[in-house]
């Protein structure tokens, strides 16, 4: 079984994000870049599927700048077999990214695509679903459990108010939620091996996907800051204030 996993380079979630004064983006001088945490979970799931089935291939794909090689190498060190970097200079919108990925899927013909449920920079939560529709494939978003038996796939998903179970034949697109698994760390031998694994670069233009932007980011602004209130000395004072001052209980 061949599994394609998407990878995005994002600021480490522990980084404090600051909007540039001109609103053109965020300050990147002190940012540590990592694999989008949900993509790590997606990769872990792909590796577990391969281990369980006792074979197959896990291929990483990223659509971004040359610097994204770093995150692809980390993914290779975790255990992916090879990686593809679709080089794109400008940031593409979700629709264009999905179109590019659809081209890659048509070339690679994986049995399964696993993406993170959202990238923690844009917080869009769109690409996996868009890709599934473009391919005419089933989708299982927000997966917390994946079971594959032959070409049948059953997924437990985090839905509103509970857990939903869906089933479908492969190929399909799954998007990973937090509780799907706990990603492994890259081991030292893994890091050594990763250096020799294939990391292919392709210019995005050569794929012939429609890249025309339809979503334009005009400007970023920092959110209004919430004022800290006061400390109270006792539970009695707290409950009293909630009743008489805030009037919420």
């Amino acid at each position: 079984m061949k599994v394609l996993v998407t990878v995005k380079r994002v600021p480490d979630p522990a980084t404090t994000i600051r909007v540039l004064p001109d609103g053109s983006g965020i300050a990147t001088d002190n940012v540590k870049w990592v694999i989008n945490p949900f993509d790590e979970i997606a990769l872990e799931e792909a590796l577990r599927i391969k281990e369980k089935l006792g074979g197959g291939e896990v291929v990483l794909v990223a659509v971004g700048e040359p610097s994204w090689q770093e995150q692809l190498r980390t993914g290779l060190a975790m255990g992916a077999d090879r990686a593809i970097l679709i080089r794109a200079a400008a940031a593409l919108d979700t629709l264009a990214i999905a179109r590019v990925l659809a081209k890659v899927v048509n070339d690679e013909k994986p049995d399964l695509v696993i993406t993170g449920k959202q990238a923690i920079d844009d917080d869009s939560n769109q690409v996996g679903q868009m890709l599934a529709e473009m391919l005419g494939w089933p989708q299982a978003t927000f997966a917390s459990k994946v079971e594959i038996s032959g070409t049948e796939c059953t997924v437990v998903r985090e839905a509103d108010g509970g857990l939903e179970t869906v089933a479908f034949p492969l190929p399909a697109v799954i998007t990973a939620d937090l509780r799907l698994n706990e990603p492994r760390y890259a081991s030292l031998p893994g890091i050594m091996k990763a250096r020799k694994k294939e990391l292919k670069e392709i210019a995005v233009e050569s794929l012939g996907a429609d890249l025309a932007p339809k979503v334009k980011l005009r400007t970023l602004t920092p959110p209004a800051k919430r004022q800290a209130g006061r400390k109270v000395a006792s539970v009695e004072e707290l409950v009293g204030l909630l009743h008489s001052e805030a009037k919420v209980i």
Binding site: P13, T16, D123, P213, V215, L217, R218, T221, P222, P223
Partner: peptide, 20 residues
């Protein structure tokens, strides 16, 4: 016709145009 949406866990508010 532009819209506002949070990004980066709410650390930034983006003004976005949807074209077409």
């Amino acid at each position: 016709a532009s819209v506002v949406r949070p990004m980066y866990a709410g650390s930034a508010l983006a003004t976005v145009e949807l074209q077409g």
